[in-house]
Each structure stands twice: as structure tokens, then as C-alpha cells.
Design a protein around this nucleic acid. Structure first.
Lengths: 195, 195
DNA sequence: GAATTCATTTGACATTTATCACAAAGCCAT
DNA sequence: ATGGCTTTGTGATAAATGTCAAATGAATTC
């Protein structure tokens, strides 16, 4: 449920965007800003729903989200994101119906930006083109690492890596979601943890 | 083993690049061409080796390659590519040591291009920037599909999907490699196939 | 604070898959 | 063709994980 979608003061928005995208040129930032706005929303809100076309990407100012695929009432989490991260789906970027759902894990504050418009800007604006490139590449490196872990590591090892790299995640995300993310059932995760 | 690395006639090279990159503008194509050359090489040659920095991406004119991670003498294939595909690793694109190895599955003919130089061109050339963007996005969509399959499908189903979508692959790639790609042992793949 | 709901843990059992050992088949070079 | 090499297939067993059912625990509502 969306609580507020307000027009933020120009300077405030600018400041936020600068902190997310420090390499973006001034003129590009102004152009970008025209398609961005502040949003506050409650836990459980779906920013992007599986099977639908969407127009927006988001910056997380406060709170967190999970991305998941669902099938026959089973949900498998693909990633989680928190404060200071950019979120969206590559299918949305491509103008396709999203395969994933992105849902708020808690009440959150966000900047949403119209990715359709931003993508149009990439046609003429090199700075924005590189920005988007960078975001996609970062995501790609992440996917490769995940694929590597799923194919090379045992579930115990994957749990260990997650626990050691981002222990905070266990405060924010349910064990059910973490289990699906690690590619095991809740029960198995529970047994792994009891050691 | 590299058999030939010759300077191909300009018009021939141009024709090939055009067929791979039909949307590339004429001037951009000329710039691109300066960093591309023809290469013929034998089965088993490693275009990119795990742990090393590399400068090149490749277009496959004839033949095929496999990409794999290796660890403790175990190899896990991540993807295969054949005629008319562009190959490289995202880590190479980022100037990092590659995590994967790319190896020729058979004697192949290739165009290699200096991705460092091409990446420099993206700083000033929008057309090339979009070209590289597109290549990366395509790869990203592929990775997401693969991750989805690994997390949602049984090994039988993954085999079925592979067999039905690209049956040719069984002519080109050993069952050992396909098994690792599907995330099972050779023995398990053999048992799946005997049904 | 009792009742309800949801998340997590535990146990018993079934299923899948890995592992190890070896046999069979295909391929290559002499 | 013969002997060596690699790839693939099969069998027996063990290990890991899923499934189902129930118990416990934690959080939320009335």
C-alpha cells in the first residue's frame, strides 16, 4: 500500500540522486531528475509484479525488498536489496513483462524513476547510458556469482558464505525466504542452522 | 593452438561485422573494425583462461566453444556458443581476471576484437555503447533463465528443456559437459537419458 | 492475557542424487 | 585389426535432501 507519493523539493531530490550516482554529469542528472519522485510505502507492497509490464525502477532510501519468482504457490527468492541500492528487473528494462516480483520486506522509503524515459535518454545521453550500463553489469556479476555458488557449493557452504558475508540479512529476511534463496527447503535450512 | 591470425581484407571483415551488428552505424563500424581481426584455431584452444586478465572478445564464424568454471579438477560448464554468437566474459569486459575459461569445442574460425579498445570507444560513441549494452543484456537474460531453471526445475525437466530447445547440442558437446551444465553428475545424466 | 496466526523446528520416512567400482562402447594412432 | 585412451552406461551403496505431520515458539489481535 502506497502511503505517500509526493513531489520532493528539487534540491533534496538532487542531493539524493547525486549520492546514488556520483559520476553522473550535471546536465544528465537534471534530465534524470524529471522522471524521478519520492515514494513511501508499506511492507508487502509489490513494486513489480510477475507477468506484468512496469515502468519504474527504484532507489531504496530506507527499508528493503525481496525479488522472487513464484510458481504453483512456491516462491523462490532471487535477491534481496536494502538501503542505498538500485532495484528493478532486467525484463522491465527491456519493456517486457517482468518474470519476477519485487516486494517490500518492510515499510520503506524509495525514489522511483521511470525507466522507459531513462532508457530513452540513453539514446542521446552518454553519461546516462554508462550509468545504466554499470547498473546492469553489477547485476550480471551478481548473477554469475550466484550461479557459481549454486553449481559448486553444497547447501551448507552456501549458507556459510551468506552468513559470513551478510549476517544482517537474517535480521531482515524470514528463514523461509532465505531457504528458497539458498535453493533448499525451510526444513533443510533449519537443520543446517542447528549446527 | 592458433593456426592463423591473418589480416582479413577490409571489405570482408566489414561484411562480417555488419552481419553480426546490423544496427551499428557506419562510422562506429569503421572504428570498431580497427580492433578486430580474423583467427583460426584448433579444438581445445583456450580463448580465455580462468584467473587471467584478457583483452579480447570473439565472434564465432565457424565452430563452437564452451565456458566453464573449474575447481579441484572438476569442471562445470556455464554455457555453450556456436556459429554467429558473440563470446567473452563479463569479468574481462570489466578488466578483471576472468573467473571462467572459454575453450574451443572444435576447430573454429573466429573474429577477435580488443574489448579494452571497444570499451574505450563506448566512452564517446553512443552506437557502440548501445551495442555492448545489448550484448550484456542478452547475456543477463540468459543467466536469469538459467538460475530460474536450476532453482525451479528437477534435473529431468532441465534435461527435457535442453533437449527440446537445442537438440543439436548433443552432437557438439560431450555428455560429461552437458551433465555439469545441467548441474548433475555424468552418471545421473546417463540414467535420465536411459528413459 | 488468552486466542489466533505465522514462522520455525523436529521426527519419520521416501526420494533423489552422489560416489565408487567396473563394464561396455567408441575413437585414434600405430 | 590391436592396444590404449576416452566416453558412456550400469550396479550397489551411502549421503543429502524433500515431504508430510506435528510440536514448539514468537508475534499480533481482541
Amino acid at each position: 500500500m502506497i502511503l505517500t507519493e509526493k513531489r520532493m523539493s528539487k534540491s533534496e531530490l538532487q542531493k539524493i540522486l547525486k549520492s546514488f550516482f556520483p559520476n553522473l554529469e550535471e546536465a544528465s542528472l537534471d534530465a534524470f531528475m524529471k522522471h524521478a519522485s519520492y515514494l513511501k510505502s508499506t511492507k508487502g507492497t509489490k513494486l513489480i509484479s510477475e507477468g506484468k509490464r512496469h515502468r519504474y525502477f527504484y532507489l531504496i532510501l530506507k527499508g528493503g525488498v525481496k525479488s522472487y519468482y513464484s510458481k504453483e504457490s512456491r516462491e523462490v527468492c532471487m535477491w534481496f536489496a536494502f538501503k542505498n541500492e538500485v532495484v528493478g528487473t532486467i525484463t522491465t528494462y527491456e519493456g517486457l513483462p517482468s518474470k519476477e516480483t519485487i516486494e517490500l520486506l518492510e515499510d520503506s522509503e524509495l525514489i522511483k524513476f521511470n525507466i522507459e524515459k531513462i532508457k530513452e535518454l540513453t539514446l542521446t545521453d552518454l553519461s546516462i547510458s554508462h550509468l545504466m550500463n554499470g547498473i546492469i553489469i553489477e547485476h550480471t556479476l551478481y548473477l554469475e556469482e550466484r550461479l557459481y555458488q549454486l553449481q559448486f557449493m553444497t547447501s551448507k557452504k552456501r549458507y556459510k558464505v551468506l552468513y559470513e558475508s551478510t549476517p544482517e540479512i537474517f535480521q531482515e529476511v524470514s528463514l523461509t525466504d532465505i531457504a528458497s534463496y539458498l535453493g533448499v527447503t525451510r526444513e533443510t535450512l533449519s537443520r543446517i542452522r542447528s549446527k
